[in-house]
């Protein structure tokens, strides 16, 4: 019994890892094709501002040295070989290996994204719950209207608006960056970091909140109209009791699934939010890499975000199964035994 469970668990893990490998291969091929066909001239990027000073012979030498004239398939092979050895290349924009840039920048972004993600999840679920329970009433209308407004507001615009109100007008929050300007890194305390994190995180969460609100509201409305809520009410359950004992868990499953699968949008939003607030995270690095035509860094970020989004989706699956027993203990596989037993007991 235990060994079969373990075996099926291992098989499932292997299947998911294989899926990730295939996904990464597809992303690597697609990114490489885009890169080869892009108008970016690697030599002028490499040489930089001195490009006017070098002649055709020097160009040819550089091209030969870097293998720019080799067939694309050969270049892809070389790149993939390096990749498999953990060498993502060198970023000229940051003058650092790509792996290091991503690691450092991601840690900075992580705080921002985690706070925004938690805020949007908690606020979105709470508001969706309120709206769904008070369906059709003023509160529901206000929340729904607000969610639709946010859903159609671009991140950078919301960011600029908040920046204007809270940093320029009220002066409560700093104008830029992750730490105070002109302060030695050792002297920056946690409070400073949180102070600088606040506005970008709120911006990022405001944009992510709308889908959570709307999906949660829908799930709550469905639960409130269900037969099992009618039966609970017939048992004398009050509205707050209904929400606590019946609606909460039913609405949590879809909300959690959505929240974990939104890591892609979260990263996309962080590109814009970090740009507006000059927050030195991975999102801002993506913009810089794109503007500076830093191809190795862009390729590295593409692969990294693939893994990031994939992990989010996998976690979403796990949490969803944990909350919803119909996923965790499906009738057709593990449940079949249970159901067969149920039928046998019935007959007996």
């Amino acid at each position: 019994m235990l060994t079969t469970v373990l075996a099926s668990l291992l098989a499932e893990i292997a299947r998911r890892i294989l899926r990730l490998v295939l996904l990464l291969a597809a992303v690597a091929v697609a990114s490489f094709v885009l890169m080869v066909n892009s108008p970016v001239d690697p030599i002028s990027v490499y040489v930089g501002a001195d490009i006017a000073a070098i002649g055709p012979q020097q160009r040819a030498l550089i091209a030969e040295r870097w293998g720019f004239d080799d067939p694309p398939l050969e270049r892809f092979g070389a790149w993939l070989g390096n990749l498999l050895q953990g060498d993502l290349g060198y970023s000229l924009t940051f003058n650092q290996p790509v792996g290091e840039v991503i690691a450092q920048r991601f840690l900075t972004s992580l705080a921002l994204m985690a706070v925004a993600w938690l805020l949007s999840g908690v606020i979105g679920f709470g508001l969706g719950l309120l709206a769904g329970v008070h369906r059709g009433r003023t509160l529901d209308r206000v929340v729904t209207w607000w969610a639709y407004t946010l859903a159609s507001a671009p991140t950078f615009w919301v960011g600029l608006l908040l920046l204007y109100v809270f940093s320029v007008w009220l002066g409560w929050t700093p104008l830029c960056c992750a730490v105070p300007v002109g302060v030695v890194a050792d002297e920056v305390d946690l409070l400073d970091r949180i102070h600088h994190l606040l506005l970008p995180a709120v911006t990022l969460s405001i944009v992510g909140v709308a889908p959570v609100v709307l999906h949660t509201r829908q799930a709550v409305v469905e639960a409130m109209e269900s037969d099992f809520v009618a039966f609970a009410r017939a048992q004398g359950e009050s509205t707050s009791g209904l929400v606590l004992h019946r609606v909460l868990r039913n609405a949590a499953a879809p909300a959690l699934l959505l929240q974990f699968s939104s890591w892609g949008e979260l990263f996309g939003g962080s590109v814009l939010a970090e740009q507006v607030f000059s927050y030195p995270g991975l999102g801002a690095a993506t913009t810089q890499a794109a503007l500076a035509q830093d191809v190795p860094l862009l390729l590295g970020i593409a692969l990294f975000t693939t893994v990031f989004v994939f992990v989010g989706n996998q976690l979403g699956d796990l949490v969803h199964a944990w909350v919803d027993p119909r996923v965790r203990r499906p009738r057709l596989t593990a449940g079949r035994g249970v159901r067969a037993r149920a039928l046998a007991e019935e007959a007996a």
């Binding site: 037969d227 048992q235 004992h245 868990r249 039913n250 027993p325 119909r326």
Partner: peptide, 15 residues
């Protein structure tokens, strides 16, 4: 008290 008719009157995610 109400005696309802089908399994849909039980909460699917609670034991």
């Amino acid at each position: 008290v109400l005696l309802p008719q089908s399994v849909t009157y039980l909460d699917p995610v609670a034991p």
